[in-house]
Amino acid sequence: LDWEPPIEKYKGYIREVQFGKPKSEGGRGKVVKIGGQRALYRFEDPQPNPPVVTFDIFDIPMPGLPKPIRQYFQDVMEDPCEWARKCVKDFGADMITIHHISTDPKIKDKSPKEAAKLMEDLLQAVDVPFVIGGSGNPQKDPLVLEACAEVAEGDRCLLASANLELDYKKVVDAAMKYDHNVLAWSIMDPNMARDLNRKLIEAGLDPNRIVMDPTTCALGYGIEFSINAMTRLRLSGLKGDEVVNMPMSSGTTNANGAREAWMVNKEWGPREYRLPLWEITTGITMMLCGVDLFMMLNPIAVKTLKEIGKTLTT
């Protein structure tokens, strides 16, 4: 009996998005690319870019971090620049995500200007590309993102995020004016991701600057909704839907919020083991649904995801 590998023909492709710029083009050096696939599996067509991990750091020490994770960053949490350096030097971060959480009026209400000052320092501290995040406050975030985008002009960062709850036009304008990409964040529904992309494009955003975040629910907390949403978006993209053929990002860090991960509970064994496994499982599941960019926190999980990710693209 004969057998042929079942290789599919795809009409579409996934757009490639670039972070950072080479020195020759006036950037800071490191360039990272995601997306660019022309098939679902590597046996159909070589996958051009391995999955990329961007390390989460915060502009103020995070008291809520569980101890098994905090132990790695205890010594640098007071200084975001040192924190970034450690992620790059010790843990091989491809990128850094800075969450400007202290800009939240309920936390420290730091001004966009102060956030931009920190952003400048961070850009000096490490040469990897950045994801720039706000605090999650819909009134403040567009202002913070705009101010940071300005000081990072030309560095092709990822502004996180544009969604329907805030003034996304401001985020789009900042991205186009200062040469950045935009994270389009929607909730576990492919149609909502499509609507959001359409609105962002109508507002003037170059579709080649969009990364989609259809929301990562942690393992055991709705991951099956994320599995469906990501799978459907990736398949639609490859089938030729040019409104959703963008690479995808996952807030894998959410996994650390699951009780099975962080809670001290003798019946469940040491949480030093559970915490990384929860993040690994969440990340790997998203990776196999087509996610390209991973926002992560635990060095063990980061290393594992990167190594497994490499096998998928070689």
């Binding site: 393992l219 055991g220 991951i223 099956e224 599995i227 469906n228 099975e260 019946e267 469940w268 064994g269 040491p270 083991y273 559970r274 496994l277 929860w278 690994i280 499982t281 599941t285």
Partner: peptide
């Protein structure tokens, strides 16, 4: 060990729930 099997069994439960 329970800590090893927890994520595996949870993932299995999630993947196989009827959407």
């Amino acid at each position: 060990d329970i800590w090893e099997l927890m994520p595996v069994l949870t993932l299995r439960q999630c993947i196989y729930t009827d959407p």
